[in-house]
Design a protein around this nucleic acid. Structure first.
Lengths: 146, 146
DNA sequence: TTCTAATCAGGCGTAACCAC
DNA sequence: GTGGTTACGCCTGATTAGAA
């Protein structure tokens, strides 16, 4: 309901890309204060994922270092790790994958795609490659190796 | 009703390309304002089509760049790409009799997914592979060779 | 009429938030 | 910290409506 109205606002409005401060708004304007949604760059994601693979629950100091390195705020980093832990737990745990399974979640969408490659004429993909892709999918969510 | 509100918001922010500017309207005076219809110049079309040929689903940053380059609003650009994808899907897809084994696959959901591959630290996928994937996706359902 | 820019209704993933 | 929720951003598919 109210969500719809907000979606309308989105239409004409600008973008927020970098982890920088979105924008200041009028004090005298009792706006609903649009919640800012950070979109991470490839670089930032890579840094965070690398750290996650090594330690999925970094301490405050590490968090700070990541913040400096990515240019994001400590809080954003922290939230990302929280969400990533949650995602990982939710998607990987309930599916205690053994040998070479495909996670039931996202692969649903990807699998049919990958299959396509076997049919297509110019797909430079061979079967081992597909296997690699599949196992990759398993841990992809946060860039974690199982 | 609510529709009017939406229209007012968009009109206030958006750009009216054609000279056809209806007068300014009070917010609290709901008049069914005319829906603005942008007509693109040859230049603008060329820019967008060139991008489409290369990537039919540009990300936010690319979208913004296109907006700056064409002088159109980001939203208008975005809508054009949405419509263009739909058009091509409708016109090209129902005729799969050609050489390309293109099926129901959608590049849309895939692109961000594929991008993930680049973010991950331990991706067992090398770059040439990614490039191949990308060109596969791009040329697939838009089949345009502009 | 046809073509298509703009809108609507709905779904998905997930960053940000909240309660505990 | 966690699990659960909210809402933002982006997408599709169908539809509405402005112009050629």
């Amino acid at each position: 309901m109210l969500d719809n109205l907000k979606r309308v606002m989105e239409n004409g409005k600008g973008v927020n890309v970098e982890g920088a401060v979105p924008s200041e708004q009028e004090v005298n304007q009792p706006k609903p204060a649009k919640r800012a949604r950070t979109s991470f760059t490839a670089d930032q994601l890579q840094v965070m994922q690398a750290q996650f693979a090594q330690d999925n629950n970094p301490d405050a100091q590490t968090l700070q270092k990541l913040a400096e390195r990515t240019g994001l705020s400590r809080r954003v980093i922290q939230v990302w790790f929280q969400n990533c832990r949650a995602r990982h737990k939710k998607h990987v745990s309930p599916n205690p994958s053994s040998g070479a399974p495909v996670s039931s979640l996202q692969s649903t969408r990807l699998s049919p795609l990958i299959d396509e490659f076997q049919y297509t004429a110019f797909a430079p993909v061979d079967t081992p490659m597909l296997t690699a892709l599949h196992s990759y999918m398993d841990g992809m969510l946060c860039g974690i190796s199982l």
